[in-house]
Design a binder for these strands. Structure first.
Lengths: 147, 147
DNA sequence: TTGCCTGCAAATCCTTTGCACTTTT
DNA sequence: AAAAGTGCAAAGGATTTGCAGGCAA
């Protein structure tokens, strides 16, 4: 944690605003999430945290992510039968997961507007746009399969 | 397995067609799935099977469901962080899962046509309509929350 | 008879929890 | 000092796997 970024300080403010304590493990998890490009599993987050703070345990990371999610600092999705992945909240988007190769990528939430309205109108169901993961086949795997 | 239904015999034919062996556990799982109204967890399937065949083990049920899925006899979805649920294939539909109360219900695949086309056009991603599970909030929970 | 299937138990993977100890406030 | 947070290890639930014996073909 040599260079605390402004984004980390924002998260710290959120913690203080919620009367949560600001600790070294929490700052480190925040920094890792800010630095991370995309989605990370808990294990990946733990490893990254432990590069700076080797004593931080995985169960602590789980507890911190749980708290961060309650404060809407992060969101997570479940990838098929595999481990959950976390990333910073803020940009609402859906996740497309290729069931062939496993890649996950994000699409703007606007693509779900139509579906969202339809499900609300027809079923009274409000789609959770922060927690949307859809499986299918990505372009590369489709082309490889001759689709 | 006192009354093997025609639907079970169809499944048996599929097994034979794939050079798979037809066993008592497989017949029983097939019958349970045919009799079941909706989505069942592996545990529920195992319990139902064991009413008829108490010696059938849960790991066998897992293996049978895996085989049935490869043969497109069943499909499964993952409900948030909980166990997977299985049901007979055939009717393509999506699953809506309420993250508040946990209920899961089905909606016709046609509701995903628009999204499906958009994802394919924009991202080359082919949505898997047999394996679609979307989280959100159901009508009852929304009303209870005053939404 | 052959080798696919099965039962059992143990192993694995991801996640949660109990408890004593350490920090933050 | 009080309360919240943490580390460790053990527990937990879901799913997979190794292996010896059993049954369909």
């Amino acid at each position: 944690m040599v260079h605390p970024s402004p984004a980390v300080e924002e998260i710290v403010s959120t913690l203080r605003g919620a009367a949560k304590r600001v600790t070294v493990p929490k700052r480190t998890v925040a920094q890792v999430l800010v630095d991370a490009p995309g989605h990370l599993t808990v294990e990946e987050i733990t490893h990254a945290v432990q590069k700076w703070q080797p004593e931080v345990s995985q169960s602590t990371v789980y507890r911190i992510l749980e708290e961060f999610e309650a404060l809407k600092i992060v969101v997570h999705s479940h990838m098929a039968q595999h481990a959950a992945v976390y990333h910073l909240a803020g940009t609402t988007h859906g996740h497309l997961i290729c069931s062939q190769c496993g890649v996950a990528f994000e699409v703007p939430a606007s693509h779900f507007d139509h579906l969202s309205k339809e499900l609300l109108r027809n079923f009274g169901f409000r789609l959770d746009r922060h927690h949307l993961a859809i499986t299918g086949t990505c372009r590369q795997c489709r082309e490889r399969a001759g689709d």
